[in-house]
Write a protein that binds this DNA or RNA. Sequence first.
DNA 1: CACTGTGGCCGTGGTT
DNA 2: AACCACGGCCAC
Length: 792
Amino acid sequence: MAKRRRAYFMDASYVVKKGRTYVALLLKGKKVVKLYYRYDPYFLVDGPVERKEEFLDIQAQKKNGRIASPIHVEEAEKYVGLEKKKLIKLYCREPSDVPAIKSQIPFPCFESSIPFVRRFIFDMQLSPFHVITYEREGREIKKIISVKEPKEAPQMETLSFDIETYNPMGAPREKKDPVIMISYRGRNKGVLTYKESSREFVESLENEKAVIERFSEIIAEENPDVIYGYNSANFDLPYLDARAKKLNARLMPGRFKGGMRSLRKGMINGYEIGGRVHFDLYPVMRFFGFIGLIKAQKFTLDAIAEEVLGKRKLDVKKEDIYQLWDQGGVDQLADYSIVDAELTYDLGENFLPLEMEMSSTAKIPLFQVTLSTSGQLVENLLMYHAAERKELIPRRPVGEAIYERLNAPIQGAFVKLPEPGIYENIAVLDFRGLYPSIIVSYNIDPGTLLEDGGENAYVSPTGAKFTKEKQGLVPVVLDYLVDMRSKIKSRLKTMDRSSAAYVKMNARSHALKILSNSFYGYLGYARSRYYSRPCAESVTAWGRKHIMDTIQKAEKAGFQVLYADTDSVFLIYEEKNQVRDFMNGINDSLPGKMELELEGFYTRGVFVSKKGGEARGAKKKYAMIEDDGRIKIRGFELVRRDWSDIAKDTQLKVLEAILKEGSKQKAVRIVRETIKELEKGTVPLEKLAIITQLKKDPTRYEIKSPELSAAKKMLKRGIPVERGTIISYVVGRKGASISEKAVPLELAEDYDVEYYVNNQVLPAVMKILKELGYDEYSMKVGGKQKSLDSFF
DNA sequence: CACTGTGGCCGTGGTT
DNA sequence: AACCACGGCCAC
């Protein structure tokens, strides 16, 4: 007797039982359950449809020696561009049969490399965290009746954890060095260890094995849906796993007896916990840093917690941990450990709503979303909607095709050269979501691109034509995302900012923005299934056309156009209403979803010249002050992490003196004072650190550089350095070249005054002070400025 | 192997 | 001194 039930769809995996494939769905209703759905994997063949039965005779040998054959064949019809196409649909016994059978087929195969669980999500049109209504018999789902967006998000149970290890040699060795503490924070919080402590939150157990087993019990008691860690996929979980094996300890962090499994997903390492979501904050923070959502100098827990939460870790050095453990510092260590678990928990709670929205928007289960790149999110969403529209999903490019794409870059945006100087009354107009709005308005899609002819079409400045007859996949999906976001944004304005609903909707708005901003890049991404050079070229060509038209019209209307970059124009105005009238006029002439917006009015702004000298202005470098006193700074050294704080702080003070107070005397005084302090030799080393990431493995560099030289000094001291490590270095006094002088911050003892004056502070401020008529000499010896002309 | 795209600035160490 | 390649980070 079938029972009808409703539950949130949380995650899915698959199992093969008695030679048949079952999708295992993780569902959350009153309780969390795991139920099974019979579903056969399949793929498509572009071959002779009338002889489809012959494909059933294929016998393919798998890697494990077993023979695989298709179990069923049928005809399928799919759209390819604007045409319909007949294909052969071959069903297989289990997912691992697909590549084997495919390799025996002498015709083009499609949709064979889509992971089976994703395939199921597409075909059933599931969304993570949506509510499904289904009929079940025993542990089996017989039918999925509906998938609906719930009014309320599921209440997620969460738990964070962190481990401390004994580390007399610096880095702990998993064969020898024990786990000495495990801290956690969920509904309860605490620290597990095997020495005595006076802290009430510490639970002292008999030995390391008991600590690990007690941790398993705690997880079972708390029963979290999500387990947070910080770098836990690379360190904590593999380490715990290795120790548990060595000690023969029972480590069962999963549900339904699910184990742990390490997996590589592109460049990112993941560690799966069966039946729960392992949410490692570290790769997610890297991703958010990469797309500019968070701004952090480093991606350590300490740095991110400070940036995001305004909280710091306790001050215990990693290399001192074993000494604290040995020398009666268990209480101190426990305090340190529990703060780590709490910070990780707070970060997790902070980012969980956004990741859940990314998950349900991109149709990728949460664990996978935490390991996904922008390209994978867009690709998955497009495949999901391609399945919905019965469109054939294009294959991923391989080999030579990728290199061809990489070797043929696409012309990008237009940037207008600014005239250096100090200006007053600047208005900034910009196109809202320029590239997405172009894609939607001109129906740009690989499938709407017309080969030749075609009457009813948009013609791009490159000559490419896009039909107006049928809306393409990319424009449809993008239109939906952009439209939903604008609706959510207006709803948000009426909502109580502290409510759970607001947090969720705000996260969704963010998720939609991240996704929609990635579509253009994905069209030009060499490894994209939907790569299209004509499409990507048309997007930027239309972008250049619209911004240049706007500049031309602004000049015709009597404005001086100071600067423009991609989607924005900077005008010098006399009356604000003239700017608004001009903008309205432009908007009347724009097609579809395109819109020019007023970004803001600025009372004063600085544009500087390029380093090379001359009067040529520098692009992408300016500072402006708004009517309300807020300062907007772009491109200057002070927004870059690879400049020292002493240079950045001085540059900021100089800009403020000029923009806020209009006082060049004050600006000069600030520079002279900074130089004096540097010469005294009393500036703290932290203010002199230059932060740079090693993007390659340290052995693979062709050239010498200060950061590489500092990295080598770290390696010599046994501090690990690898691709991706972020190096902080100070230029010291010992050595001939700058590289030789570069010393990692933690080993630095002194600094080179000359370097910090001539290569850091002065270059940063002189660009600005040059616009006021000063030269370098006058900064150092306190002489008079070259020119007495006053700007203000 | 590689993190959606192109345009742009600039430091460092090297060559001419 | 002028110029270049490499490499990193930022604007959009």
